[in-house]
Structure formats: C-alpha cells, structure tokens
C-alpha cells in the first residue's frame, strides 16, 4: 500500500465548499504528492458523470475528497460518495488549520471542517459531514453521516443530529437536543425542543413541512405490541 505522500488526492465536486478549498488548499496540511481538482458544472451533472470520473482513477493511486454542498439533503454529495466507497476508494477528511478539535473527538472520512470551527471534547462527526466556517460544537455531541452544519452555528453540549440533516447558517441548538434524520433547519434562531425526523423548517413554509407515513409519523408511542 502506498503512503499518502506517494498517492495523489483528487478533490471532486462543485459549489461553495469546493471553491473555498480550491482557493485555500495550502491551509489544509495535506500530505499528498499531488493534488488535483475535478469540478462538475453543477450538481445535476453529478449523477450523469460520476461513473466516468471514477473510472479514470484507481484506489491504489488516489485518495478522494468529495466536495459538494448541502444540495438535496446532502444526497447530491452522496451520489459521489456512495459509488466511490463501493469502488474501494479511501476518502480523506479536510480540517482547516485554523480549526480546533478537542480531546477524544472522532472525525469520520470525507469530513470537511472549515476555517475557525471549534469542536470540543468527545464529539463524533460521522462520515461525509461538512461543518462550515466559524461554527462551534460543544462536548459530547454527535453529528450523523452526510450532514451539513452552516456558518456561525452554535451546537451546544450533548446534542444529537441525525443523518442527512441540513443545519443552515446562524442556528443555535440548545444542549441535549435531538434532531432527527432528514431534517432541514433553515431559519436562523434558537432550537429549544427536539425536532422529529423529516422536518423541513424552511423559509418558503410558514409552518414546517413533515415527512409522514412509514418510519416517520409512526413513532410507536403508547402502542401496545
């Protein structure tokens, strides 16, 4: 197996994170012999072009970082990440040198930690999750895979965020709050109560939208088995 410094790093994607990494690549302390950027025109071209982009690469010669924003509950990024993992690629994580990680904090693969992010102790940032600039995450917090935390967020201690969540800019989440999977919180402010899976708190809706039916509104509360 090649040491990372002998391999090449392919940064593939599009959007704001891709561009910010491109202009600031020297701040990520990466140990690779060569770094290449492959930019898609837009997210709609990812599904069509993923196979051809990956077919030109081999897991032995290249590691990947898949940089796509939070489009479609992060499933646009997953369209790249899923096939890459199936082909056996190792995905590196990118931590900006101005970010700070606490003791015992675990960072999964293909995680992006942006400039001036603070993550305190014993946190778990699962694979393929992006945390944008100037956000802070308190002790013992878990952020599920394929999620997104925007700029200037404050996630307090012992918060649990499910998979495929989008927490937009300027959101504060109180301690011990649980945010269910497939949730969008797009309105800046303070989250004081748990948020059930499949909640879409977006500007377009005065009242949040909800996923209902199998595995959503069927919460099993008070149901005799």
């Amino acid at each position: 197996m090649k040491h990372a410094s002998q391999k090449c790093l392919q940064i593939i994607g599009c959007g704001s994170v891709f561009k910010s990494i491109q202009v600031d690549i020297g701040r990520y302390c990466l140990d690779y012999g060569q770094i290449n950027f492959v930019e898609f025109d837009d997210v709609s071209s990812i599904a069509l072009n993923t196979a051809s982009v990956l077919s030109d690469l081999s897991p032995e010669a290249a590691d990947l970082f898949l940089a796509v924003d939070q489009n479609a509950l992060n499933y646009a990024r997953l369209e790249l990440y899923g096939p890459a993992k199936l082909k056996g690629f190792k995905c590196t994580s990118m931590v900006h040198d101005s970010a700070a990680l606490g003791v015992g904090t675990y960072i999964g693969e293909n995680v992006w930690i942006g400039p001036n992010v603070r993550i305190f102790n014993r946190c778990n940032i699962a694979a393929d999750t992006f945390i944008a600039a100037c956000s802070t995450i308190g002790d013992d917090t878990h952020v599920g895979a394929h999620s997104w935390i925007g700029k200037n967020c404050l996630i307090s201690d012992s918060v649990s965020i499910g998979t495929n969540c989008v927490i937009c800019d300027l959101i504060n989440i109180n301690a011990k709050i649980k945010i269910g999977r497939n949730t969008i919180l797009a309105q800046p402010g303070l989250i004081l109560n748990n948020v059930q899976s499949g909640t879409f708190h977006e500007f377009i809706y005065e009242k949040p939208g909800h996923m209902i039916g199998r595995n959503y509104s069927f919460s099993k509360r008070g149901v005799s088995k």
Partner: peptide, 11 residues
Amino acid sequence: FGDVAVHVNIP
C-alpha cells in the same frame, strides 16, 4: 402510492 409522504399546511 408509496407509503411515505411529505405534508405541509400553508395558511
């Protein structure tokens, strides 16, 4: 129909 839906109320 699939067995999952999305629902929203718009005043």
